[in-house]
C-alpha cells in the first residue's frame, strides 16, 4: 500500500514538474492528461486492487479439509466474547490466537448486527443474531493486534474494541490455561 502510494505520488509530482519545464510542457496536452491521468492509470490501479481483493477474498473462505482451529465469537452490545471449543475458556474483549495457523472464526450475535474486524489480519464479517458466519484468518507474526466492531450497533459502538494477542504455538496453550485459572 505504501509502495503503491509512493509510486503514484512520484508519478504525479513528475507530471506536475513537467508543467514547469518549457521543453516538456507542449507534450502535456489536455487530451493526453485526461487519457492517461484520468483513464489509463486509474484503470490499471483499480484492476490491480480488484485482482488482489478477489484473490484475498478466496483465501478468507473456510474451505473443507484444512487443519484449522475453530474459535467462537459472540458479539453483544457492547462487548465481544470468545470461546475456545474443547476448553472451558471464555474471554471478554481479549482474543488469544496461535501464530501461523488458519483459524475459522464462527461469528454470531446475541442482539443486533455487529461486524467482526481485525484490520491487520484481513476482511471483516457480519455478526448476525440467529446466524453463524465463518471467516478464516491467520496471523503470521506474534504480537498484539487491534480488533473493532465495524457495523454501527448502538451508542456503545465506537469503543466496542477488542485486543488480539497472537502467541507462538508453544505459548498458546499456556495462555489459555492461565485464562482458565482466572
Amino acid at each position: 500500500m505504501l509502495a503503491g502510494a509512493t509510486v503514484i505520488f512520484l508519478a504525479t509530482s513528475l507530471a506536475l514538474a513537467g508543467a514547469f519545464i518549457p521543453s516538456v510542457r507542449p507534450l502535456l496536452t489536455p487530451k493526453r492528461l485526461i487519457l492517461w491521468g484520468g483513464l489509463v492509470v486509474p484503470s490499471l490501479g483499480l484492476a490491480a486492487l480488484v485482482a488482489g481483493a478477489f484473490a484475498l477474498g478466496e483465501r478468507l473462505l473456510p474451505r473443507q479439509g484444512a487443519e484449522t482451529l475453530r474459535i467462537e465469537v459472540v458479539a453483544r452490545q457492547f462487548a465481544w466474547e470468545f470461546r475456545y471449543p474443547g476448553t472451558p475458556v471464555a474471554t471478554r474483549d481479549v482474543l488469544h490466537i496461535p501464530v501461523g495457523r488458519d483459524i475459522d472464526f464462527a461469528v454470531t450475535s446475541e442482539d443486533v448486527i455487529h461486524s467482526f474486524w481485525i484490520p491487520r489480519l484481513g476482511g471483516k464479517i457480519d455478526a448476525i443474531p440467529g446466524h453463524e458466519n465463518i471467516v478464516r484468518l491467520r496471523a503470521d507474526a506474534p504480537g498484539t493486534y487491534g480488533g473493532i466492531c465495524a457495523e454501527y450497533c448502538g451508542e456503545g459502538h465506537a469503543p466496542m474494541r477488542f485486543t488480539v494477542i497472537a502467541h507462538a504455538p508453544e505459548d498458546y496453550e499456556a495462555a489459555l490455561t492461565s485464562e482458565a485459572a482466572r
Binding site: A47, F54, E58, L61, Q64, N133
Partner: peptide, 14 residues
C-alpha cells in the same frame, strides 16, 4: 469489469 467475478469466484461460503 465488475461482474466477471460471477464467472470465476467462489459464490457461497463452503
Amino acid at each position: 469489469f465488475t461482474y466477471f467475478g460471477a464467472v470465476v469466484l467462489t459464490t457461497c461460503n463452503p
